[in-house]
């Protein structure tokens, strides 16, 4: 495949928004049509480039939330108040609008159903997006790998894909979800109500002896705390895959 290497070079493509779905007050899912798109694997991301009229360009990375077999490309974007790109994508973009995009990117943070231990997914805020692609892929392929998700949000209203996650957890296919709400909890809340720590992870995570494969995605501080806690629980470093969003994501 000598020629494929050249063809494999990333080129900027034109994405058109065909639909825009409000997920929470701060997040929207952009359903995109991208002529020339070659498909992706669960967990990968794209780079987006916006160009202003004066030629100024801003570039950011966003995870793909749809599953590889969905036949569509969905990005879930959270508004960062002082960001350069996300306020446009979340507040202003309309169906029919276009922007530049390249991908798929990042074969390292990819889940494929392989023989091995159970899967642990740790999401902080909009870090759920690439993990949702994995969960959708898992459901679409009827995978039975035991999977647990621990999802940390500020409040219940900030939980993205809540109904779909509940549905996936209710179908008895070996997927369990734990939520922790770090700032506000509704009356009668029975889930966790603090930032993740060693004790919380010890309760939720698979025992290290089962050789779990962990995917951790969220703000840098969240990922740092979660990954180091998993290390202390005995998880193998090579089986803790991390994807840090940085402080803002922009």
């Amino acid at each position: 495949m000598a020629g494929a290497a050249v063809l494999g070079r990333l080129t900027w493509l034109v994405a058109e928004a065909v639909d825009v779905l409000t997920e929470t007050p701060r997040t929207r899912t952009l359903v995109l049509d991208v002529p020339g798109w070659t498909g992706h694997r669960a967990g990968q991301h794209v780079d987006i480039r916006l160009t202003a009229e004066d030629g100024y360009q801003a570039q950011r990375s966003y995870s793909i939330a749809s599953a590889p077999g969905d036949g569509r490309l969905d990005l879930t974007v959270e508004r960062i108040e002082d960001g350069e790109v996300s306020p446009y994508l979340v507040d202003d973009l309309l169906p029919g609008d276009r922007f530049e995009l390249r991908g798929p990117i990042g074969g390292y943070f990819v889940w494929e159903d392989e023989p091995g231990g159970p899967v642990l997914l740790l999401a902080g805020g909009s870090g759920i997006a690439p993990l949702m692609s994995m969960l959708r892929h898992r459901a679409a392929t009827a995978s039975e790998v035991p999977t647990r998700l621990l999802y940390s949000s500020r409040a219940l209203g900030d939980v993205i894909y809540r109904e779909e996650l509940d549905r996936l957890a209710a179908d008895g296919a070996g997927f369990e979800i734990s939520l922790t709400l770090t700032r506000a909890q509704p009356p009668g809340w029975e889930g966790y109500e603090r930032r993740i720590d060693d004790e919380l992870l010890a309760e939720v995570a698979w025992p290290a002896t089962e050789r779990p494969l962990a995917f951790v995605c969220g703000p840098t501080t969240f990922v740092e705390v979660a990954a180091s806690a998993l290390s202390r629980l005995g998880y193998e470093p090579a089986r803790i895959k991390t994807e840090r969003f940085g402080p803002t994501g922009g």
């Binding site: 494999g8 070079r9 990333l10 991301h45 794209v46 780079d47 990375s61 390249r102 991908g103 990117i105 990042g106 074969g107 390292y108 943070f109 840098t220 501080t221 740092e224 991390t242 994807e243 840090r244 969003f245 940085g246 402080p247």
Partner: peptide, 16 residues
């Protein structure tokens, strides 16, 4: 800890 730190995976586009 550097809050701006990312993973190598995040700059996969640049590497490509």
């Amino acid at each position: 800890m550097d809050e701006l730190m990312l993973d190598g995976n995040a700059v996969g586009g640049l590497l490509l």
